[in-house]
């Protein structure tokens, strides 16, 4: 554990909490993509199957449980409790176009061809692109509430901080994992346009609105 890794995890945790607060306080999931949230739930479940096979640390176990539980809590709020506020019409991204290619890629490029390992790799690939339905939704509506922007910024920062963690681990421990680095880089690049808008608009107190 190094400072970048810890900051990344905390940023990830903050993102999830911000999202739950937004939905709970406004009693609405308007502007949030249910499709992205479904993908994140798939990511956590397929990656954290090792909860039942390998014990790494109490921290590791707790964080995994928090990520899985909170993603299902978010889905419950969106698809059950506050279903009426869910933005169906704008959330039209076809997630099978992400799920299938990621799965095929995981079958082809992985560290070892075992069920757990392929699912772990699948989750890494899927996480890289899981935010696309959300970004698609923002681009369709042309705007995002400020708390939604903070959520996206924290979520994007998490993988960017992991990139720094991987650079650190390469120099400090000689450890690197090309699958994770490649997917993490793609994931971070997808947020770049959003980061730019966040820094130039939201941080200056303006609403995130895309140019017409």
């Amino acid at each position: 554990m190094n400072i970048f890794r810890l900051a990344g995890d905390l940023s990830h945790l903050l993102a999830i909490i911000l999202l739950l607060i937004k939905i709970w306080k406004t009693r609405s999931c308007a502007g949030i993509s249910g499709k992205s949230q479904i993908l994140f739930a798939v990511v956590y479940v397929s990656r954290y199957l090792d909860l039942v096979t390998t014990f790494i640390s109490l921290y590791n176990t707790l964080m995994k449980l928090v990520f899985i539980t909170s993603s299902f809590a978010t889905l419950y709020l969106m698809y059950v409790k506050f279903k009426a506020t869910y933005d169906h019409n704008h959330d039209s991204f076809r997630i099978e176009f992400l799920l299938l290619p990621c799965f095929v890629l995981a079958l082809l490029i992985n560290a070892s061809f075992t069920p757990l390992e392929v699912l772990w790799t699948f989750s890494i690939y899927l996480e890289a692109v899981a935010i696309l339905p959300q970004l698609f939704l923002v681009s369709k509506t042309g705007e995002a509430e400020s708390i939604t922007s903070h959520y996206l910024f924290a979520l994007g920062s998490y993988r960017a901080l992991y990139l720094l963690n991987w650079i650190y681990r390469y120099y400090a421990e000689g450890h690197y994992d090309l699958i994770a680095i490649f997917a993490g880089a793609i994931q971070t690049i997808l947020y770049c346009d959003f980061f730019y808008l966040y820094i130039t608009k939201v941080l200056k107190g303006k609403k995130l609105q895309l140019p017409a």
Partner: peptide
């Protein structure tokens, strides 16, 4: 193992 170390990440 090199790759196994990645599994301690989240």
């Amino acid at each position: 193992m090199q790759h196994e170390n990645s599994h301690d990440e989240l």
